[in-house]
Design a protein around this nucleic acid. Structure first.
Lengths: 233, 233
DNA sequence: CCAAAAGTGTTATCGATACACCCATGT
DNA sequence: ACATGGGTGTATCGATAACACTTTTGG
């Protein structure tokens, strides 16, 4: 029943879309352990600093990792099971990288949505970040409770796009086709929308503009481009 | 840029409904300070203990305060501004009650919905808990950032009941009338629903049962009672 | 018999769904 | 000419919204 102080971290579940599949950005973590192997994966994250608030910590992590600013970020839940950072490989890694003796770690989790076509400069030399298919998540053993966090993040975003469809545009290039939009929607929700009905629905989303422009260099009829204009009201 | 350890607390925004108004359960906090007066109010909360997870901490706080178990609880957001526990009266109070030197406090906020008719035994002798009209929230100066937390909680629950109407039943007695249900709904959303349309809508909520029973001791035509049966599918 | 609240049905509108054929382009 | 994906309209169904009068009960 004793009171104590845990460390507080931020973890970011970063989703992207390559036109076909939903992707998640993970960091390669090196561990030296004969039983487990040499490496595994984790969500990007960090202990919060003394003078930053939660949102800013998430922004920092994203910027450090990708060099990007102004990306969609939303806090969705915190995780604080006493055992969540207690696996030997996690403890070992934490101590090595933070130089701290961490008894317990409460994490505030964020979802980030990024346009995968923005060429990302992975800045830190000593971290390897890579996109992974979200579908292969269940086969990967992520660090800590990061499998659970990623799963919850997906649920969160699934729920969100149904009521706030404009969230989808965060994952697409500035100009996109209706087919790309539909593929994205159907990929996230695991549905198969009717082409015509989907178009009707999306055209009533405020700010979605039909452009007088088509996609170039396609080996078939060039599809029309659309753009989302947040401002317009 | 230094790493450090904040304390982690849980705060609960507890809503109730008295048949007319939405209520929030607040705790009287005594402070001895000539400028501020002798007391103000705060959300029920506590530092988390070493061996409990976040949900269990919230359950503990609720049980300690009200003696109730099995009540609706949902984590909705965490608050961690570096300044959020820095007002003199908050610092002073924290030190006195926790006997700790708290530099920073990150809080994980929960919404609880309780049936106000369950007579609550406020257990701790040295805390005074009372229901307040939610509408008077803006005139009260709560401790820490609790005004903001309560406001966010209300938004959360407003959003929730529109897509998951059964959440409403958490705030009503086991048996209730359609008018009570409608009053509750309209109070939360600040709407005025049409009596007939509302009834039609609610009757298609899975698990809502029309009983062959009416309310007793009413000075006018006795209204029919309804019950929500979660299990039935 | 009056006051107060309960109970009840129809119509119009809107949004969601189901469904199939022709068009433009590159090879 | 053909293969590939793009683009388009109508009919039906279900949900929502608007709307007013009669019934029950206690005092």
């Amino acid at each position: 029943m004793s009171v104590f102080y845990p460390y507080v971290s931020i973890d970011c579940v970063i989703f992207g879309f390559d036109g076909e599949k939903l992707k998640i950005l993970l960091i390669e973590r090196t561990i030296n352990n004969a039983e487990i192997g040499l490496s595994d994966k984790k969500l990007p994250g960090s202990i919060i600093f003394e003078d930053e608030n939660l949102d800013n910590a998430a922004i920092r992590i994203l910027n450090d990792l990708t060099g990007l600013k102004n990306i969609y970020l939303s806090q969705f839940r915190s995780f604080g099971d006493p055992e969540r950072a207690n696996k030997p490989r996690d403890k070992q890694w934490l101590e090595r990288t933070t130089q701290l003796k961490i008894g317990r770690l409460v994490t505030v989790a964020y979802v980030a949505l990024i346009k995968i076509n923005r060429k990302i400069i992975f800045q830190s030399e000593n971290t390897t970040a890579r996109w992974y298919d979200l579908t292969s998540l269940s086969e990967m053993q992520l660090a800590f409770d990061h499998n659970q966090i990623a799963t919850e993040a997906l649920k969160f975003i699934r729920n969100k796009i149904q009521y706030e469809s404009h969230t989808l545009f965060e994952l697409l290039p500035n100009k996109f086709t209706m087919t790309q939009l539909r593929n994205l929607y159907d990929t996230i929700l695991e549905t198969k929308s009717d082409v015509r009905n989907f178009q009707k629905k999306m055209l009533q989303v405020e700010g979605l503009e039909k452009l007088d422009e088509v996609q170039k260099n396609v080996p078939y009829r060039a599809p029309r481009l659309y753009r989302y204009n947040k401002k317009k009201k």
